[in-house]
Amino acid sequence: MTLLELQRRMEQDVRRPLTAELTMQPRTTEGESMDEIAAAYIRPNSELTSFERLEIYNRQYWFRVIGAVSEDYPALQALLGDERFDALVLAYLKQRPSTSWTLRDLSAHLPQFLEQHAEFASEQHRLAVDIARLEWAYVEAFDGAEIEPLASDELAKLGPESTLALQPHLRLLAVDYPVDEFVLAVKKPEEKAVTSGAAQLRQANVTTTLPAMAPEQRYLAVHRYDDVVYYRTLEESEFRLLKALQERKTIAEAVEIIAGEEQVATIQQTFALSSELGWFCHPTI
Protein backbone atom coordinates (compact mmCIF):
# COMPACT_ATOMS: atom_id res chain seq x y z
CA MET A 1 0.00 0.00 0.00
CA THR A 2 1.50 3.35 -1.01
CA LEU A 3 1.32 6.41 1.24
CA LEU A 4 -1.43 7.91 -0.92
CA GLU A 5 -3.42 4.68 -0.95
CA LEU A 6 -3.19 4.38 2.82
CA GLN A 7 -4.26 7.98 3.32
CA ARG A 8 -7.23 7.60 0.95
CA ARG A 9 -8.26 4.42 2.78
CA MET A 10 -8.00 5.95 6.24
CA GLU A 11 -9.66 9.23 5.27
CA GLN A 12 -12.64 7.32 3.91
CA ASP A 13 -12.88 5.29 7.11
CA VAL A 14 -12.43 8.24 9.46
CA ARG A 15 -15.21 10.20 7.71
CA ARG A 16 -17.69 7.31 7.69
CA PRO A 17 -20.77 8.31 9.76
CA LEU A 18 -21.09 6.83 13.26
CA THR A 19 -23.91 4.64 14.48
CA ALA A 20 -26.69 6.09 16.63
CA GLU A 21 -24.67 4.90 19.65
CA LEU A 22 -21.69 6.97 18.43
CA THR A 23 -19.60 3.93 17.56
CA MET A 24 -17.97 3.01 14.27
CA GLN A 25 -20.24 1.32 11.74
CA PRO A 26 -19.56 -2.45 11.71
CA ARG A 27 -20.07 -2.55 7.94
CA THR A 28 -19.68 -0.13 5.05
CA THR A 29 -22.69 0.78 2.94
CA GLU A 30 -21.41 -1.79 0.43
CA GLY A 31 -21.58 -4.45 3.15
CA GLU A 32 -17.84 -4.84 3.74
CA SER A 33 -16.72 -5.72 7.24
CA MET A 34 -14.99 -2.83 9.02
CA ASP A 35 -13.20 -5.40 11.18
CA GLU A 36 -11.55 -6.78 8.07
CA ILE A 37 -10.88 -3.37 6.52
CA ALA A 38 -9.22 -2.07 9.71
CA ALA A 39 -7.21 -5.25 10.24
CA ALA A 40 -5.81 -4.96 6.73
CA TYR A 41 -3.83 -1.80 7.51
CA ILE A 42 -3.90 -1.12 11.26
CA ARG A 43 -2.00 -3.18 13.81
CA PRO A 44 -3.85 -4.26 16.94
CA ASN A 45 -2.12 -3.98 20.32
CA SER A 46 -2.59 -5.95 23.52
CA GLU A 47 -5.57 -3.79 24.55
CA LEU A 48 -7.33 -2.73 21.36
CA THR A 49 -8.27 -4.42 18.10
CA SER A 50 -7.56 -2.75 14.77
CA PHE A 51 -11.24 -1.80 14.59
CA GLU A 52 -11.13 -0.16 18.03
CA ARG A 53 -7.99 1.82 17.22
CA LEU A 54 -9.52 3.14 13.99
CA GLU A 55 -12.73 3.89 15.85
CA ILE A 56 -10.92 6.40 18.08
CA TYR A 57 -10.14 8.50 15.00
CA ASN A 58 -13.59 7.97 13.50
CA ARG A 59 -15.27 9.25 16.67
CA GLN A 60 -12.85 12.15 17.13
CA TYR A 61 -13.48 13.29 13.57
CA TRP A 62 -17.21 13.53 14.04
CA PHE A 63 -17.02 15.08 17.52
CA ARG A 64 -14.66 17.72 16.17
CA VAL A 65 -16.57 18.71 13.03
CA ILE A 66 -20.01 18.65 14.65
CA GLY A 67 -18.58 20.72 17.52
CA ALA A 68 -17.15 23.25 15.09
CA VAL A 69 -20.47 23.69 13.27
CA SER A 70 -22.36 23.94 16.58
CA GLU A 71 -20.11 26.80 17.65
CA ASP A 72 -21.11 28.78 14.57
CA TYR A 73 -24.86 28.11 14.82
CA PRO A 74 -25.98 28.19 18.48
CA ALA A 75 -29.30 29.86 17.63
CA LEU A 76 -30.11 27.39 14.88
CA GLN A 77 -29.35 24.59 17.32
CA ALA A 78 -31.62 26.21 19.91
CA LEU A 79 -34.45 26.45 17.38
CA LEU A 80 -34.17 22.91 16.03
CA GLY A 81 -33.17 21.12 19.22
CA ASP A 82 -30.13 18.85 19.47
CA GLU A 83 -31.58 15.87 17.63
CA ARG A 84 -32.73 17.70 14.52
CA PHE A 85 -29.64 19.92 14.52
CA ASP A 86 -27.29 16.91 14.69
CA ALA A 87 -29.18 15.23 11.84
CA LEU A 88 -28.85 18.40 9.76
CA VAL A 89 -25.12 18.77 10.47
CA LEU A 90 -24.43 15.12 9.75
CA ALA A 91 -26.22 15.30 6.40
CA TYR A 92 -24.46 18.57 5.56
CA LEU A 93 -21.00 17.23 6.36
CA LYS A 94 -21.63 14.02 4.45
CA GLN A 95 -22.45 16.06 1.39
CA ARG A 96 -19.88 18.80 1.97
CA PRO A 97 -16.80 17.52 3.79
CA SER A 98 -14.23 20.17 4.61
CA THR A 99 -12.24 21.39 1.63
CA SER A 100 -10.43 24.13 3.52
CA TRP A 101 -7.34 24.05 5.72
CA THR A 102 -9.24 26.04 8.33
CA LEU A 103 -12.19 24.83 10.39
CA ARG A 104 -13.46 28.40 10.22
CA ASP A 105 -14.82 27.69 6.72
CA LEU A 106 -16.43 24.36 7.55
CA SER A 107 -19.98 25.59 7.98
CA ALA A 108 -19.94 28.31 5.31
CA HIS A 109 -22.43 26.47 3.09
CA LEU A 110 -24.84 25.34 5.79
CA PRO A 111 -27.43 28.09 5.07
CA GLN A 112 -27.60 27.10 1.37
CA PHE A 113 -27.75 23.42 2.29
CA LEU A 114 -30.61 24.07 4.70
CA GLU A 115 -32.36 26.16 2.06
CA GLN A 116 -32.38 23.10 -0.22
CA HIS A 117 -33.35 20.62 2.52
CA ALA A 118 -36.58 21.71 4.19
CA GLU A 119 -36.98 18.28 5.79
CA PHE A 120 -34.53 19.18 8.57
CA ALA A 121 -36.69 22.05 9.84
CA SER A 122 -40.18 21.12 8.54
CA GLU A 123 -42.66 23.92 9.34
CA GLN A 124 -39.88 26.15 10.71
CA HIS A 125 -37.89 25.98 7.51
CA ARG A 126 -38.03 29.64 6.48
CA LEU A 127 -37.21 30.79 10.01
CA ALA A 128 -34.35 28.28 10.30
CA VAL A 129 -32.81 29.43 7.02
CA ASP A 130 -32.96 33.08 8.10
CA ILE A 131 -31.30 32.25 11.43
CA ALA A 132 -28.57 30.28 9.67
CA ARG A 133 -27.93 33.13 7.24
CA LEU A 134 -27.64 35.62 10.08
CA GLU A 135 -25.31 33.39 12.10
CA TRP A 136 -22.98 32.90 9.15
CA ALA A 137 -23.07 36.65 8.46
CA TYR A 138 -21.86 37.09 12.05
CA VAL A 139 -18.84 34.83 11.38
CA GLU A 140 -17.98 36.80 8.25
CA ALA A 141 -18.39 40.15 9.97
CA PHE A 142 -16.31 39.00 12.95
CA ASP A 143 -13.08 38.40 11.04
CA GLY A 144 -13.70 39.96 7.63
CA ALA A 145 -11.25 42.51 6.26
CA GLU A 146 -11.52 46.16 7.24
CA ILE A 147 -10.11 48.84 5.00
CA GLU A 148 -9.60 52.55 5.36
CA PRO A 149 -12.98 54.29 4.99
CA LEU A 150 -13.38 57.35 2.81
CA ALA A 151 -12.57 60.59 4.61
CA SER A 152 -15.14 63.38 4.66
CA ASP A 153 -13.27 65.40 1.99
CA GLU A 154 -13.24 62.32 -0.26
CA LEU A 155 -16.95 61.79 0.30
CA ALA A 156 -17.58 65.43 -0.61
CA LYS A 157 -15.95 64.88 -4.01
CA LEU A 158 -18.30 62.03 -5.00
CA GLY A 159 -20.51 62.63 -8.04
CA PRO A 160 -23.41 60.80 -9.72
CA GLU A 161 -21.02 58.62 -11.76
CA SER A 162 -18.88 57.62 -8.78
CA THR A 163 -18.89 54.07 -7.51
CA LEU A 164 -18.18 53.03 -3.94
CA ALA A 165 -17.11 49.91 -2.14
CA LEU A 166 -18.59 48.95 1.19
CA GLN A 167 -16.52 47.57 4.06
CA PRO A 168 -15.70 43.91 3.29
CA HIS A 169 -16.99 42.85 6.72
CA LEU A 170 -20.43 44.42 6.14
CA ARG A 171 -23.18 41.93 5.28
CA LEU A 172 -26.66 43.04 4.13
CA LEU A 173 -29.51 40.60 4.73
CA ALA A 174 -33.21 40.70 3.94
CA VAL A 175 -34.99 38.26 6.25
CA ASP A 176 -38.61 37.18 6.72
CA TYR A 177 -38.46 37.05 10.53
CA PRO A 178 -36.93 39.32 13.20
CA VAL A 179 -34.14 36.77 13.64
CA ASP A 180 -31.71 39.30 15.07
CA GLU A 181 -33.83 39.26 18.25
CA PHE A 182 -33.81 35.47 18.32
CA VAL A 183 -30.05 35.20 17.84
CA LEU A 184 -29.31 37.83 20.47
CA ALA A 185 -31.56 36.05 22.97
CA VAL A 186 -29.62 32.83 22.45
CA LYS A 187 -26.17 34.42 22.48
CA LYS A 188 -26.59 36.47 25.65
CA PRO A 189 -26.58 33.71 28.25
CA GLU A 190 -24.02 31.78 26.24
CA GLU A 191 -21.17 33.97 27.47
CA LYS A 192 -18.61 31.88 29.22
CA ALA A 193 -16.59 32.56 32.31
CA VAL A 194 -13.16 31.33 33.29
CA THR A 195 -13.31 29.69 36.67
CA SER A 196 -10.52 29.40 39.13
CA GLY A 197 -9.57 26.50 41.34
CA ALA A 198 -11.87 23.95 39.80
CA ALA A 199 -10.16 24.69 36.50
CA GLN A 200 -13.29 24.30 34.49
CA LEU A 201 -14.84 26.35 31.78
CA ARG A 202 -18.55 26.30 32.39
CA GLN A 203 -21.53 27.67 30.59
CA ALA A 204 -23.17 30.39 32.63
CA ASN A 205 -26.11 28.83 34.41
CA VAL A 206 -28.85 30.91 32.86
CA THR A 207 -32.09 29.65 31.39
CA THR A 208 -33.24 31.40 28.25
CA THR A 209 -36.76 31.96 27.06
CA LEU A 210 -36.56 32.09 23.30
CA PRO A 211 -38.66 34.85 21.74
CA ALA A 212 -41.68 33.74 19.71
CA MET A 213 -41.13 34.40 16.03
CA ALA A 214 -43.88 35.72 13.77
CA PRO A 215 -43.17 36.60 10.13
CA GLU A 216 -41.94 40.17 9.74
CA GLN A 217 -39.88 41.44 6.84
CA ARG A 218 -36.67 42.89 8.20
CA TYR A 219 -33.56 44.39 6.61
CA LEU A 220 -30.32 43.97 8.51
CA ALA A 221 -26.78 45.28 8.30
CA VAL A 222 -24.35 42.93 10.06
CA HIS A 223 -21.15 44.84 10.65
CA ARG A 224 -18.17 45.24 12.93
CA TYR A 225 -17.31 48.32 14.95
CA ASP A 226 -14.38 48.40 17.40
CA ASP A 227 -14.06 44.60 17.05
CA VAL A 228 -17.67 43.98 18.10
CA VAL A 229 -20.27 42.63 15.65
CA TYR A 230 -23.60 44.49 15.56
CA TYR A 231 -26.94 43.86 13.88
CA ARG A 232 -28.49 47.08 12.65
CA THR A 233 -32.04 47.27 11.34
CA LEU A 234 -32.39 49.28 8.14
CA GLU A 235 -35.34 50.77 6.29
CA GLU A 236 -36.09 48.87 3.10
CA SER A 237 -35.04 51.85 0.98
CA GLU A 238 -31.75 52.17 2.85
CA PHE A 239 -31.14 48.48 2.34
CA ARG A 240 -31.81 48.68 -1.39
CA LEU A 241 -29.58 51.71 -1.80
CA LEU A 242 -26.70 50.06 0.08
CA LYS A 243 -27.18 46.78 -1.77
CA ALA A 244 -26.96 48.60 -5.10
CA LEU A 245 -23.79 50.38 -4.03
CA GLN A 246 -22.33 47.09 -2.79
CA GLU A 247 -22.98 45.67 -6.26
CA ARG A 248 -20.85 48.54 -7.63
CA LYS A 249 -23.65 50.43 -9.30
CA THR A 250 -22.90 54.14 -9.74
CA ILE A 251 -24.44 56.48 -7.21
CA ALA A 252 -26.86 57.69 -9.91
CA GLU A 253 -27.95 54.13 -10.69
CA ALA A 254 -28.32 53.26 -7.02
CA VAL A 255 -30.38 56.36 -6.31
CA GLU A 256 -32.61 55.52 -9.27
CA ILE A 257 -33.57 52.26 -7.56
CA ILE A 258 -35.16 54.09 -4.67
CA ALA A 259 -36.89 56.79 -6.70
CA GLY A 260 -39.96 58.08 -4.90
CA GLU A 261 -41.12 60.49 -2.26
CA GLU A 262 -38.63 59.38 0.35
CA GLN A 263 -35.67 59.45 -2.01
CA VAL A 264 -33.91 62.53 -0.65
CA ALA A 265 -34.43 61.59 2.97
CA THR A 266 -33.21 58.04 2.34
CA ILE A 267 -30.08 59.22 0.58
CA GLN A 268 -29.23 61.66 3.35
CA GLN A 269 -29.96 59.12 6.05
CA THR A 270 -28.00 56.30 4.39
CA PHE A 271 -24.97 58.42 3.60
CA ALA A 272 -24.92 59.87 7.11
CA LEU A 273 -25.14 56.45 8.72
CA SER A 274 -22.57 54.87 6.39
CA SER A 275 -20.12 57.74 6.86
CA GLU A 276 -20.47 57.61 10.62
CA LEU A 277 -19.81 53.86 10.70
CA GLY A 278 -17.04 53.98 8.06
CA TRP A 279 -18.83 51.72 5.59
CA PHE A 280 -17.84 53.59 2.41
CA CYS A 281 -14.44 52.80 0.93
CA HIS A 282 -12.53 53.27 -2.30
CA PRO A 283 -13.89 50.94 -4.99
CA THR A 284 -10.45 49.47 -5.65
CA ILE A 285 -10.90 46.36 -3.52
Binding site: L3, Q7, E11, V14, Y61, S98
Partner: peptide, 25 residues
Protein backbone atom coordinates in the same frame (compact mmCIF):
# COMPACT_ATOMS: atom_id res chain seq x y z
CA UNK B 1 1.44 13.92 10.56
CA UNK B 2 -1.05 14.03 7.74
CA UNK B 3 -4.69 15.14 7.67
CA UNK B 4 -5.87 15.87 4.15
CA UNK B 5 -6.15 13.95 0.90
CA UNK B 6 -7.64 14.78 -2.50
CA UNK B 7 -8.56 18.26 -1.24
CA UNK B 8 -10.59 17.03 1.73
CA UNK B 9 -9.52 17.89 5.28
CA UNK B 10 -10.08 15.82 8.41
CA UNK B 11 -8.82 18.58 10.77
CA UNK B 12 -7.06 15.87 12.74
CA UNK B 13 -3.39 15.05 13.30
CA UNK B 14 -3.39 11.59 11.75
CA UNK B 15 -0.40 9.27 12.21
CA UNK B 16 1.94 8.36 9.38
CA UNK B 17 3.15 4.92 8.42
CA UNK B 18 6.86 4.86 9.28
CA UNK B 19 8.06 3.97 5.81
CA UNK B 20 10.89 5.20 3.60
CA UNK B 21 8.35 6.57 1.16
CA UNK B 22 6.81 8.63 3.97
CA UNK B 23 10.28 9.84 4.99
CA UNK B 24 10.99 11.10 1.47
CA UNK B 25 7.55 12.68 0.98
Amino acid sequence: CWGSVDGRYTHDLLPLPYTWEAVRT
